[in-house]
């Protein structure tokens, strides 16, 4: 009995996780390489087949989230997967996706100004196993709608990203993680002039069964570089010194 306990407990833990929306990872699935941040999730991997919620502050926040997600998508869409990007009016500029390693022609854009249509389409895409991911720029949704999305994602294994702007009334929705991504001043090596690699402050505000945290992430052409910041917002002068 005593010997069986660790195994049993591990098994039970796995079951609890799967009940909470974490899929048991399959070996051949493309994994998202997010150093340090992955450790915040149970099992130490970025959960796919679930809904991730991104809180965006302003248009720059939208752009930063879109960039971060594009890089994550590039990993998810390996092996010729397609993604659907649902938005009221398309503002994403496909050529920029190349910078984050994603293939722009594998994105299908759905311009749906009506919230109702957008939710319907997002759920349909989540139900359909053929997609690698779906991104929805949806302003308002309630708990019930989000639960439907989350259940659909769990069933099909499609990863969903919700980009939420206008966070005045930020209600709780069913998602596996709530992120907030803001741009940080870029860092140039050797004080070179010009703008450096995209650099963000990535915050995990809420993780189901995981450890929330904050990190500084840089996208260096083809991979993420993550650091644990000493303080949340570094004063401008500090950056100059690190450069």
């Amino acid at each position: 009995m005593n010997q069986a306990n660790p195994d049993l407990i591990r098994k039970l833990k796995r079951e609890i996780l799967s009940l909470q929306g974490y899929r048991t990872p399959v070996a051949e699935e493309p994994a998202v390489d997010l150093p340090l941040i992955s450790q915040a999730f149970p099992n130490g991997i970025f959960p796919t087949g679930a809904i991730h919620e991104f809180i965006c502050e302003g248009r720059n926040g939208m752009a930063a989230s879109a960039g971060f997600i594009s890089a994550v998508l590039a990993a998810l869409m390996k092996d010729r997967g397609v993604a659907a990007w649902i938005n009221p009016v398309r503002q994403l500029f496909p050529p920029a996706l190349r910078r984050f390693g994603a293939i722009p022609e594998h994105f299908i854009f759905l311009d749906l100004p009506e919230e109702k249509d957008a939710l319907w389409a997002m759920e349909e895409v989540l139900h359909c196993g053929g997609f690698a991911a779906v991104i929805g720029e949806i302003r308002q949704l309630d708990l019930t709608a989000s639960r439907r999305l989350q259940l659909a994602a769990e069933k099909s294994g499609v990863t969903g990203f919700l980009l939420r702007q206008h966070t005045v009334a930020l209600n709780t929705i069913a998602s596996i993680a709530r992120w907030r991504i803001n741009s940080l001043p870029s860092v140039q090596e050797d004080d070179l002039p010009g703008v450096g690699f995209p650099r963000w402050q990535v915050e995990l505000l809420r993780v189901r069964n995981g450890q929330p945290g904050a990190w500084t992430v840089q996208w260096l052409q083809d991979h993420f570089k993550t650091e644990v910041p000493e303080t949340i917002a570094l004063p401008e002068s500090m950056h100059r010194k690190t450069g």
Binding site: R59, A63, S70, Q91, A96
Partner: peptide, 9 residues
């Protein structure tokens, strides 16, 4: 690809 392009235009 050789020139930066914004993610949101």
């Amino acid at each position: 690809e050789y020139r930066p392009r914004p993610i949101r235009l």
